[in-house]
Computed example of a mutant assay.
Amino acid sequence: MKILVRNLDRSVTEAEVLDLFKTYGKVDSCVVVKDADTGKSKGFGFVEMSNPREAVKAVKGLNTLKVKGAGIRVKIAEDKA
C-alpha cells in the first residue's frame, strides 16, 4: 500500500520518516520528494508497506502527529487515473 505523507517540515529526512513508520510494521520503501533544482525537500513523501493492516494502523497512528513542530498529514495514496 502506498501512503502519502504531507506537511513535513523541510528538514525532516527519509530516515526520520522511515523510523516513524517502522514502529507499525515492515516498510518496503520510503521517499521524501525533493526539488530537482535545489535538492531540498518539498515537504511531502511516500511510504510503501506491503501489509495492508500495518499500513492502515500507521495511517491512523501517525496522521496529525507533530514532527518538528508541524502536524503531519498521512493518508492512503490515491492511484492516478
Rank of each mutant, 00 (worst) to 15 (best):
P52Q: 08
R53T: 15
A55V: 01
I72W: 13
V31R: 10
G45I: 01
L20M: 03
L4A: 14
G45E: 10
M1P: 15
F21I: 04
V47G: 03
V56W: 02
K2A: 13
V31L: 00
L8M: 01
D37R: 15
N51E: 05
G43P: 03
G71D: 08
G45F: 06
V56Q: 15
A81C: 13
V17Y: 04
F21Q: 06
E78G: 03
V31D: 05
K66R: 14
T13I: 14
L18V: 07
F46Q: 04
D35Y: 10
D9P: 07
K42C: 01
Y24P: 02
S29T: 02
V5W: 05
K42N: 05
G61T: 06
C30W: 08
K57I: 05
V17P: 06
K68L: 06
A15C: 08
M49E: 04
T64P: 10
R53H: 13
L8W: 02
F21M: 04
D9H: 00
S41T: 01
D35S: 01
V32P: 02
E14M: 09
F46M: 01
K22F: 09
V56D: 14
K60D: 13
D9T: 13
T23K: 10
E16D: 06
A70W: 10
E54C: 13
K34Y: 13
A70N: 11
T38P: 06
D19W: 10
T13W: 09
K34D: 03
K57R: 07
A77S: 08
E16F: 12
V12W: 03
V5M: 00
V32L: 00
G39V: 03
S11T: 09
A15M: 08
V47F: 00
S29D: 00
F21C: 04
L18F: 12
M49H: 00
K68N: 09
G45A: 03
S29L: 04
K68V: 09
L20A: 11
K68C: 08
G61H: 00
E14Y: 08
V12P: 03
K42Q: 03
V56L: 14
E78F: 04
V56E: 10
T64E: 13
V12M: 01
V31N: 09
R10Q: 12
T23W: 11
E54I: 05
K57H: 15
R6K: 04
Y24S: 02
A36K: 12
E48H: 09
A36Y: 12
V17Q: 05
F21S: 00
R6P: 09
D19M: 09
K75S: 15
D9Q: 11
I76E: 13
K68D: 08
G61R: 09
I72H: 06
L18P: 06
E16Y: 09
C30Y: 03
V5L: 01
D37V: 15
N51A: 02
E16M: 06
D19T: 08
L20G: 06
S50W: 00
G69C: 07
G69A: 06
L62A: 08
G71T: 07
K60W: 01
V67Y: 05
N51K: 07
K22W: 14
A58I: 07
N7E: 10
K42D: 01
A15D: 10
V27R: 01
E48F: 11
A15F: 07
R6F: 04
R73I: 15
V17W: 12
K57T: 10
L18C: 11
R10D: 11
S11F: 03
F44C: 01
V17E: 03
L18W: 07
P52W: 03
N7H: 09
E14G: 14
E14Q: 13
